[in-house]
Design a protein around this nucleic acid. Sequence first.
DNA 1: TCTTAACCCATGTTATTCCATATATATCCA
DNA 2: TGGATATATATGGAATAACATGGGTTAAGA
Lengths: 154, 154
Amino acid sequence: MALFLSTHINKIDKKGRVSVPAPFRAELSEESFKGIVLFRSNIHQCLEGFAWSYMQEIGKRLDNFDLFSSEQDDLATSIFGTAVQLSMDGDGRIILPADLIEFCTLDDRVSFVGMGAKFQIWNPESFEQRREIARQAVQSKGLTIPKATGGKND
Amino acid sequence: MALFLSTHINKIDKKGRVSVPAPFRAELSEESFKGIVLFRSNIHQCLEGFAWSYMQEIGKRLDNFDLFSSEQDDLATSIFGTAVQLSMDGDGRIILPADLIEFCTLDDRVSFVGMGAKFQIWNPESFEQRREIARQAVQSKGLTIPKATGGKND
DNA sequence: TCTTAACCCATGTTATTCCATATATATCCA
DNA sequence: TGGATATATATGGAATAACATGGGTTAAGA
């Protein structure tokens, strides 16, 4: 499984292109589709990015719902219907669609934030505030990572 | 299996032709029949679109009902009875039959909405409302993607 | 004959590919 | 250790290809 780490800030050129950070590209190199899948976060004013195989996994799980059930329909609409698949050029760049740039009010620079299996794309200034809020939440609530459960992924 | 992603808005020309989005065409390229199957949604004012091979999957699932049961009969009628098989021209366009255009009150533009294994065809304005309703349903009902269950697809 | 669908080609726009360069990091040799 | 040389990365721009769309022409069917 891909593991995205650290925060990288890159520039958007006037054609809307951004370099995907090289360490992220390395994580994606084993994928059959060498590109990323983005969609709007429901919580923050940012984008969530995944590897293609992760979307296939979600697709399989959605198959566990009855076809045409309202649950399946709602989830598929809000997940697959709003996702965008972006391929990379030979230099590891993607083109951010205008509506997504607008959604997270990006200017000329973006932060790629590693979140483990996924990553987020932020306006660098917005992310600095978000980082501080997250840090305080972890501290005040005493949040910790749950222990391994011996599940299927071990 | 084909995986349809994202929402693409295309135009209907005065001859009734619409381009199937190129990424969708790519997903269909491995099919023996390079075209799509459409039928009326039972839930929404939209069309359900599938690759030919997935119609066979639907047939299999219908077998889980008792043959001659009223449920089986109703579903088979509304799905297979109304389905139309549309082939694409050399430029990847289909011609939407007039009764289907009327059913989802399409004007001059259509939204192709990726839903994973299937896709939907909407009037773009109607779909924007539908998208928002789906988003709220996912949030308010707390819908999540189920964990893999070790079913037949693993 | 008239209508409709299939086929072919043209065009503007957008995305992709290719190449060039600057900067930073890593490597190597003295 | 220090300096010179490679390598990787990010970024900019130009050439090329793909795509959606429009129109015309032919073939088929009622």
